[in-house]
Design a binder for these strands. Structure first.
Lengths: 174, 174
DNA sequence: CTATTTTAGTTCACTGGTGAAATATAAATC
DNA sequence: GATTTATATTTCACCAGTGAACTAAAATAG
């Protein structure tokens, strides 16, 4: 039940009907926007499902992966907040739980003692290397029937959309 | 700070480096997947920002919109759960708050007394009609530089991806 | 230099969302 | 017709994420 196909069909109809009542509605845009939200939501669920056996949630995983991907293997809470789009409050908790599991360490920076350095441990690296590969097949399946052109197109369109969203938020702050 | 462009640049590099350490990584797919997650997250934030003045959150808004889009203006908690991909628990709370604001009513079904009928009120309809139009310009701006072909392509690719995700979750249940 | 402002991080209180158990009704089976 | 099974919703206890206030250290201005 409740597969995406059904949800999308229902949404198509729903937006159609709303457009009848409120003709100024930009129906095509609303549809694309809702599709993005719906798929984002679903992918997040799928990911969290894969993370559950490892007792990680999405933001903890993302934080750990950023550290793993760094040549130095370290970062600060502030920087991690930016790249994970998390609040500082939450990053404190994420760091707490990762530290408790010995996947990262947290030490005060000696140069700027306001700052804290979060660094992935060797155990953290091993953990990532072990948990990552089993997720590859699913990742592949997500885009199984996407040809090279499809992939390039989707990549291009998503980056274009990202540009527009950046403009939107800049305009909002100005 | 922390605009999407920077996040994406950082992600491109990060996935590149992880791919060097773990060559089996399907880098292109991982990138598309993360792009979807990132954009979904950003769009959700943008939406919630627009909803805040009306004291609604995303799931309350979505629930109300589904009711609004129905010819009968009504549904049941179970059905709303399916289409909003929310748990039943949360739908109870959503209904509670919408009822408290007199935007919907909640009455026991006479046919099947386990069921509950949730129906949008005239005030709820007026509320939607008033709050919706101010969001149209932003919605337009999101896809401002998307030509007709771009829109069609994005629509097609997202629906294709949805099909794959449905297969994935079906396979998981089987 | 010292006083003020800015920056980095944490703590606290709250909102939003979830899984497991409870409740109530309907449908199926014996 | 009684009993089991399935379905719909709610309640409860907990996890995840946020805004506001707080603490400490740098940077800057007077």
């Amino acid at each position: 039940m409740a597969n995406l196909a059904n949800c999308i069909a229902m949404m198509d109809e729903g937006i159609g009907r709303v457009g009848q009542i409120i003709p100024q509605l930009p129906a095509r845009e609303a549809l694309l926007c809702r599709l993005m939200l719906m798929l984002g939501h679903t992918i997040e669920r799928e990911l969290e499902f894969n993370l559950k056996p490892h007792k990680l949630n999405h933001s903890e995983f993302l934080t750990l992966m950023i550290l793993y991907s760094r040549p130095e293997g370290s970062s600060t809470p502030g920087e991690l907040c930016e790249y994970t789009t998390q609040g500082a409050t939450n990053m404190t908790r994420i760091a707490n739980t990762l530290v408790k599991r010995r996947l990262v360490t947290r030490v005060a920076s000696s140069k700027d003692r306001r700052r804290v350095l979060i660094r992935i441990t060797p155990a953290g690296r091993r953990f990532v290397q072990k948990m990552l590969p089993p997720m590859f097949p699913q990742l592949g399946a997500m885009f199984a029937n996407f040809g090279d052109t499809d992939r390039r197109q989707l990549d291009r369109l998503l980056r274009k959309l990202a540009g527009n969203l950046d403009q939107l938020s800049e305009r909002r702050l100005a």
